[in-house]
Design a protein around this nucleic acid. Sequence first.
DNA 1: CAGCAATCTTCGGAATCCGTCGTGGGGCGC
DNA 2: GCGCCCCACGACGGATTCCGAAGATTGCTG
Lengths: 164, 164
Amino acid sequence: MSTNGRSRGKPSARPPVNLDDVSKAIIEQLQHDGRKSYAAIAAEVGLSEAAVRQRVQRLLDAEVMQIVAVTDPLQVGFLRSAMIGLRVSGDMTEVADALTRMDEVDYVVTTAGSFDILAEVVCEDDDHLLELLTKRIRALPNVTATETFVYLKLNKQLYNWGTR
Amino acid sequence: MSTNGRSRGKPSARPPVNLDDVSKAIIEQLQHDGRKSYAAIAAEVGLSEAAVRQRVQRLLDAEVMQIVAVTDPLQVGFLRSAMIGLRVSGDMTEVADALTRMDEVDYVVTTAGSFDILAEVVCEDDDHLLELLTKRIRALPNVTATETFVYLKLNKQLYNWGTR
DNA sequence: CAGCAATCTTCGGAATCCGTCGTGGGGCGC
DNA sequence: GCGCCCCACGACGGATTCCGAAGATTGCTG
């Protein structure tokens, strides 16, 4: 059945796992086609099929990469996606963790700039977005301000920017 | 070899493709595990293995979804990722298209709010980011202002928010 | 009602997946 | 330097999956 098990949300627990060139090459192959066969990848990177399989499994376990279907939320029925910028007083990690635990939030980044955290949310409609924003996000302690950018159109969505 | 061929950047050319429940169920399966076998998916959604295979191929061709490996840029050697908010005068589509064509830009959304466009960029280092921002993005016609949010840490990155 | 297009099922052969075993090289302690 | 351990790789065989093609089924149109 080939399940990769988990689908967690925190690439966080990271022993910085430095990757060798072969693993990077494998990742690049899968960035282009997540269903490419192990044998075909093996031919590209110069390993046996089994070795590639074991490496891929290790990369998945270590949460260095995920192999998943990616869609445009607007196309699959989520009519109100948005990016929300937050300003936070004090420790940001607590707010970031709280956002991470919300189902509607699929992307959380802590940043340097006039926002401390950026969070992408996926909602079904305006009511849903409104409830999430006012009742749950702005209600978090230490959140001093938010700004919402409702998505009108997703122009580009790519994941095959290799490795370095 | 099972290649899904392209890896383009524009989910744009869309005949709005409305999805039936079965296709949505297939997408949800693959959002959890992009390598799940057709047979296993078929058992879940109640179709034959071949039918699932044909539907998946159609969804890929229509660019409703992509099956790819997704990574944390910071973990694979891109030390300077950032979100860039742009203010644009006049037509936004031209600017959005220009951003879409840049290799370092992996995500472009047009939004309602104080920014007209949000673009995520993936750079190797500060010099690279600086060159991209000043020489190429801010140089675009009709871009009146930009604001850059450099990524400090990617807290969450999920793609399995089902369908509606 | 005939014809066409789209989608599903069935089917068989080729390719892939997957667990397992044996091997070889690098790191570490002695 | 020598042996030991561990980890990653290659090899192999059986179960499973993938994949193309061909025949049914459905729904729509002229």
